[in-house]
Design a protein around this nucleic acid. Sequence first.
DNA 1: AATGAATGAGGTTTCATTCAT
DNA 2: TATGAATGAAACCTCATTCAT
Lengths: 205, 205, 205, 205
Amino acid sequence: MARRRLTPEQRREELLEAADLLLQACGTALRVEDITTAAGAAKGTFYTCFDTWDDLLIAVRDRRLAMVEQRITPLFDPTAPQHWPPLLPRLAQVLVAFILDLGKLHEVLFHSTFHLRHPLPPEVEPATRFAALLRAGQAAGAYVDLDPEPTGALIFAMIHETADSIAAGTDYERAMRALTTALNRLVLKPNGASSCHSPTQDALC
Amino acid sequence: MARRRLTPEQRREELLEAADLLLQACGTALRVEDITTAAGAAKGTFYTCFDTWDDLLIAVRDRRLAMVEQRITPLFDPTAPQHWPPLLPRLAQVLVAFILDLGKLHEVLFHSTFHLRHPLPPEVEPATRFAALLRAGQAAGAYVDLDPEPTGALIFAMIHETADSIAAGTDYERAMRALTTALNRLVLKPNGASSCHSPTQDALC
Amino acid sequence: MARRRLTPEQRREELLEAADLLLQACGTALRVEDITTAAGAAKGTFYTCFDTWDDLLIAVRDRRLAMVEQRITPLFDPTAPQHWPPLLPRLAQVLVAFILDLGKLHEVLFHSTFHLRHPLPPEVEPATRFAALLRAGQAAGAYVDLDPEPTGALIFAMIHETADSIAAGTDYERAMRALTTALNRLVLKPNGASSCHSPTQDALC
Amino acid sequence: MARRRLTPEQRREELLEAADLLLQACGTALRVEDITTAAGAAKGTFYTCFDTWDDLLIAVRDRRLAMVEQRITPLFDPTAPQHWPPLLPRLAQVLVAFILDLGKLHEVLFHSTFHLRHPLPPEVEPATRFAALLRAGQAAGAYVDLDPEPTGALIFAMIHETADSIAAGTDYERAMRALTTALNRLVLKPNGASSCHSPTQDALC
DNA sequence: AATGAATGAGGTTTCATTCAT
DNA sequence: TATGAATGAAACCTCATTCAT
């Protein structure tokens, strides 16, 4: 009725905002019309902005990833001077917080067939980035020698699992402590008892 | 038209067999009618054997789990005399093989909303079983002290991730080697370099 | 399983008994299998006794009609010495009681498309019988001259409606009083106020 | 394929028109798809106009009731100066014509379980309106004292029955004459023989 | 560019009836 | 005769996507 003329970018942004919010709350049950209604647009307008439902999900995902990117870029940046031991726990903390914040959007993006149809591009794929980080840490002599690519994937799998557990009811502190311990045992050299304690504490405060 | 009269068990088994096979090949796209057609039955027959589509998936999953069960039960059994170090890698090997063998059934059962609606019962949930195993290994003095429940979940997450990677194209040997190393570093005491090498070799041969 | 060999008549009777009971309680929602289960028979046995669902309903109806028949035959019998004024109210009483006793069977038999497919045979059709009664009453000089066939139908329509009203919550006494009054005004000659009072009282005690 | 874009009201009206026509001809056997096909619409379009099959029937019924409403409103109106004696027969005439005109739609709306699920709202329920009319006629001294509510129901029951009889083959004139006589005997005071004759004649011409 | 009515394939499920055993 | 597994047509409804306006 009241036709609001917006730039395509504005339109798209409004739909994305609505979709993000509603997906977070409703998950898989969400329909195209719910989004356009919430955004004050007509159903057909959806398809002037997105070719397909999956395209919307990709855009929503990109948007979320962009939001976390600024927080993790400095941590992942191999050119920056790194304090290696607490680095992984810190990244874990940030990523777990990111995942938990997704709410039901998490299952839509990462526990449905969508992410099989549309895997993350390598440059944002956490496994890849952890692999690069591992490599840098190894070069710096801070991490033990592990095959970077598969191990990077394992690291992120543990982080992801921890987020899922917490979302499913596991105590946050307990899960994070176990994760931190595991990450440290995996990559740090066992020089004295310190490696298993202080980083953990650092990471959690 | 040509009506075949079977016992409910036989019919159910034929439908399960067909469903298993087709799900393995087609994944999410499969419909009730595809299964009955493949099994030489009428559509309605499906509903004499299964109340609902999800019930079928549960039955298919149970069937697969039963097949792997005999192979992992002795390994998980905490009363049996265990050779602790190679135990986890061996379990990993079996479970990865199990997951890979699922084909597209894997995504249907474990990467879709189905498994959010119907999580595995705790007694077969790998995370729980790894927790028990960890506890036993710790009591035996073979494993380091780690919080069993969350760590059990992490262990299975790594195994699951490894299977996914391999299914996605990662080299099997490489992925398994990284997994074995990670598992060993996580649970074994770093007494000598042996712990990181020989078990790996054992597990992979 | 435990196959009970009965004569066809016994079988049929058991199914009828179960069907009657369950239809009274469940109405339209009842299914073939509910009946056979309740009668301790297999589903297919139903079709050795009745060709079709409608045939069952016909049999149930006949059975109910036979039960009421002995109570109304003497009242309808035009050869018996009749006390004309209270006759219609008395029949109304019996028929209303009969209908109310049907419970949900009533809607199945008389408020569904079944009774359009299978109208009552004329010899038990109340309209026809009321027509005969009217004729006899007129011959006896007790009833006014009314076209017997259509008026017989109207009389039963009022009785039926009264039963429906009571089933729907109208007060029994009030509904019956109005019905009795209407019947009397319809067929009796208005000789004195008596005709509207005493028969009513007779009928209701 | 050839898509016709109509306003919701137009589309709804076309579907209603088609449904009305087909229900009149086919009765209970009609399916959603028959209607949409006849109306040149797709199956799904049905559900943009009606939530449910029952909702369609309600709309069809309302439509038919609205058509008869203008003809009976003045007759039922208790504020209008009434010529009481011929009023009921005239209403009967109109209502019988209305019912007969329904064709098989009649059984769908009034002899099926639909009307048990969705009884008429009281303000259009004939029994209620006849009750009001009786009350007004009694206040005007034109009708005898009868309990208005149950008697109103009886009056409509007779009218309904008469329509059913005629639909089933009874001669129209004969049935209507009997009905008129019955209505008059029921509500009019027996002052002279006139009450039973002239109104009848009036009503039928 | 925006609208929202229209599409139509697809989904699950029910149950009177049939028929091989 | 009795069984109960099997049939399969039909029902209702959803919703991503299209397209006339």
